[in-house]
């Protein structure tokens, strides 16, 4: 079994878990949550096996990074779920991990060799850079989904349309996923803010490391490439968002729109980075 095929195990577990949502019984909804956790545990096992086989030396592989990103996304979501007791985010964010796993399966499995003139410090910096950026991106991915829910729910409250006031109070789905309370804007906004508060410093340090690597590799503080420009624009968006939140109390819909715009830029830069123009990131 190849590594790519291994990615399909959690992929199909996640897909299978969604079938349980079609049911109308509480035990099936709980089975969905159980399967999501099971999928995450299997993802973790694959990660451990991979580390045992390869260590850090073969880290730079597109499929592995995408798989690692899927694992990080699930870890962030599960931690959030435990912390905020909002099980519904599992339903909405798991598809992001699913997409990552699918991309991981189809992505090239050959390892990108690090430039021979990378020192061991540079290599450690590169790994840290990747991990920090990926954790930050996972948090922003979560903020993106939460923001979409926020905008959807805020619109319903504002327009007073399609708003199920009691969320089928006695329906097991509501009981399991919403704790009988449904979405509330304040909690969604608070989760969004939390993602930003944690994600932004990680991204900042990650980008700083990227700049350091760039200067170390190309002997220049910065080379004008789309990925760098986009990263900086993304960073700037999140910086403005954080500043506005802290200084002016920006929250609610505008903050959600910022989060969505920021994550769409992240997606664009990642697409540029890995799939369309890998040379722009300096991999080749």
């Amino acid at each position: 079994m190849t590594l790519g095929e291994l990615y399909l195990i959690p992929f199909f577990i996640y897909i299978f878990s969604y079938l349980f949502l079609l049911s109308k019984e509480k035990k099936f909804y709980q089975a969905f949550i159980f399967l999501i956790y099971a999928g995450f545990i299997i993802q973790s096992l694959i990660l451990v096996i991979w580390f045992n086989l390869h260590g850090f030396k073969d880290l730079i592989s597109v499929d592995w990074i995408v798989f690692f990103n899927a694992w990080l996304t699930m870890m962030v979501v599960i931690l959030f779920n435990l912390f905020y007791k909002a099980k519904y985010i599992l339903i909405y964010v798991t598809p992001l991990a699913l997409i990552n796993l699918l991309i991981g399966f189809f992505a090239p499995h050959n390892y990108l060799t690090m430039k021979p003139f990378f020192s061991s410090l540079d290599q450690a910096t590169l790994i840290t850079h990747i991990i920090l950026i990926l954790i930050g991106d996972s948090l922003f991915a979560l903020a993106f989904i939460i923001s979409l829910i926020y905008i959807f729910q805020e619109r319903r409250i504002k327009l007073k349309k399609n708003l199920k006031l009691f969320d089928k109070k006695n329906h097991p789905f509501d009981e399991v996923f919403y704790r009988g309370k449904g979405y509330n804007l304040e909690l969604l906004d608070s989760m969004n803010y939390f993602c930003l508060k944690i994600g932004f410093p990680l991204i900042t340090v990650g980008i700083a490391m990227g700049i350091y690597l760039s200067s170390s590799l190309f002997k220049s503080f910065m080379i004008i490439k789309p990925i760098e420009i986009m990263s900086l624009i993304t960073w700037l968006i999140y910086a403005v968002l954080l500043h506005e939140r802290v200084a002016k109390g920006l929250r609610g819909k505008k903050a959600a729109v910022f989060s969505i715009a920021g994550f769409l830029l992240i997606l664009s830069s990642l697409t540029f980075s890995f799939y369309l123009f890998p040379e722009f990131h300096g991999f080749k």
Binding site: Q153, I157, L165, F166, Y183, N184, L185, E186, S190
Partner: peptide
């Protein structure tokens, strides 16, 4: 009751 339920949709 509806007013309280609506509040719960906005506030945590």
């Amino acid at each position: 009751y509806a007013a309280v339920e609506l509040s719960k949709k906005i506030f945590n």
